[in-house]
Amino acid sequence: MTKVHLLMKKEEINEEKLAEGNKIAVVLDVLLATTTIVSALKEGAKEVIPVLNSNEALELAKRYKQGEYVLAGELDANPIEGFVYPSPTLIGEAIAGRTLILSTTNGTVALRKSLSADKIYIASIMNNPAVANALQKCNDNQTILVICSGNSGEISLEDFYGAGHFIDCLLKNGKFDLTDAAKAALYFYRGQDDSYEILQDSYVGKLLEKYNQQTDLTLAASKGSASIVPVLKNGRVVIDTIFV
């Protein structure tokens, strides 16, 4: 039976251990990096390139012509000069056909730290059902590692909830061997009724509400609103599967 384990924050990623055996990483940063990535691809983005920091993003942008890309990012939830704030609703308006170069404090760093996994899926509350569907055919010798990006070394309420939602989606169509950490996220998710309320009550959710970004909260809380399965390949996030 395929094992499912959970990491509470990106700082728990051990890149050497991740390279051992046959591990599949499922990375979540519900507010907002993975939601932004999923939304951008759903709205027609060519690809998304997650970077470690703004300097790397600026260097990468030099390879593209004006109009071919959107440069987006935040640092400790603050805007970066010259970057579009990584709001999924804002980026979605102008991303069709373009490359999104994305730098965030937690989510893009978690993705880059996961590169030693055999395969890396990008998950959010929007597309958890689709990613779970794609992982139904895992082999017994594979381990699914659900990675919460967290919040600058702290546990993130919205990622923990999102991880529980993803695991719940997995179990609807198959049997998996859950570690205690994975069970904790699952039981927490099943004890909640309102995804928007959970996101709104989180630390980042309160910041978004303070700056009138309720539309992003609503999008991030929309269960199964995207049927795409994005994966990180060769440094770029592209759509691997679309479920219709």
Rank of each mutant, 00 (worst) to 15 (best):
Y189N: 11
K137D: 12
K17N: 10
L219Q: 14
V84Y: 01
L6F: 13
Q192F: 01
L115W: 01
K233H: 07
I147S: 07
P88L: 04
E20L: 14
T34C: 06
G174A: 13
C138Q: 09
E197V: 04
R236S: 10
V48A: 02
Q214P: 00
G150Y: 03
H5R: 15
D118M: 02
G44C: 04
A163I: 01
I91T: 04
K119F: 00
Y211I: 10
E16R: 09
R112Y: 02
K23M: 05
F188E: 15
Q142Y: 03
L207I: 15
Y187W: 11
F176P: 12
A61N: 07
A77M: 13
I91A: 07
E158P: 08
K210A: 12
G164K: 14
F83R: 07
I198Y: 03
S114E: 04
T89L: 13
G107A: 04
I91P: 01
Q200A: 10
I167P: 02
V231A: 06
A117N: 07
Y211P: 00
T215W: 00
T36V: 08
F83H: 07
P88R: 00
V238F: 00
S124F: 10
K9A: 03
A182T: 06
A134H: 05
G191F: 13
V238P: 01
T105I: 02
K23H: 05
G235R: 08
T218P: 00
V38I: 08
D180V: 10
E15W: 04
R236T: 03
Y64T: 06
Y85F: 15
A117S: 11
D194F: 00
Y203S: 12
N78I: 00
P129L: 06
V27E: 03
N133R: 15
L41W: 10
H5S: 15
D240F: 12
L75I: 05
H5L: 15
S202F: 10
E56F: 07
Y161W: 08
E56H: 14
K113V: 01
P88H: 06
G162T: 09
L207P: 02
N128G: 14
N128F: 15
C138M: 15
L41N: 11
Y85N: 01
S114M: 03
T143I: 10
V30C: 05
G21N: 09
I24N: 01
D216Y: 11
T36E: 09
E74G: 02
A220R: 05
H5V: 15
L75A: 03
I239V: 15
V26A: 11
F160A: 14
I91Q: 11
Y85C: 01
D168F: 00
L7N: 10
R63A: 00
M126V: 06
S195Y: 12
G67A: 04
P230A: 05
K113C: 01
A117P: 08
